[in-house]
Amino acid sequence: MIDFTEEQLERYSRHILLDDVGVDGQEKLLQAKVLIVGAGGLGCPAALYLAAAGVGTIGIIDSDIVEISNLQRQIAHFTKDINVSKVDSAAEKMQAINPDITVKTYKDYLCAENITKIIEGYDFVLDGTDNFPTKFLVNDACVFLGIPFSHGGILRFNGQTMTVIPGQTACYRCSFRTPPPPDAVPSCAQAGVLGAIAGMLGTIQAAEALKYITGVGELLTNGLLTFDARTMAFRKINLKRQVKCPLCGDNPSITRLVDAEQSVCELKTDPVAA
């Protein structure tokens, strides 16, 4: 059992006061390891809240540097951080909020070759990437390694998120199957995004991570939570594990990690898809 210092008791008092979290829950948080993929719109608010919550080890991976166009929504990066690596910028703010925790930074781009080594040992992965190849790669690697994770996406005024417990609940491929063709994908850069929805979605993902670690409540599994900020309508679409899922179904065709750019290329030469 951890002997909380006076300062820790005060810092985490609002967690300890919660019946469902309490002293035990806060201990679990301090011993937990969460990896955040992407230090952008979703990763920033998630990183700040997880740091504030006292998640003991937080890994954060991103190969980009901060640009002025990021500042409208990537809330851990400040004007002074332009041209600084995103993970260094985020880590600085996380440690400033809570020096209690350990932040591991990875200035890297996740790919089939390095993902297993990076995510192994984490208790939970929070996907805040901007691209589908990485989203599918995170899903596949987490399913192979049995690591629970939160999927998140935002576009314009909309957001979506789901939590996956590998082997038990629907995975991202159960519902989305394969990445969309790259030329069909609008990015934030092309489509635009209302800054605050990054915070709305990233903090939902952070809450799921905290719930998973502490065992509080019911996770957002077998359901895709979507919202449209123009009307503030939230919907939870029921999903289920698909027996035909190529990854976690009964006869999986995906048996090893591949970078999805490749499979998109393969798709293009597939006469059925062409």
Partner: peptide
Amino acid sequence: VEFLYFMGGGSR
């Protein structure tokens, strides 16, 4: 029928 939209966004 459910249309599930691919949503990336987040990092860049």
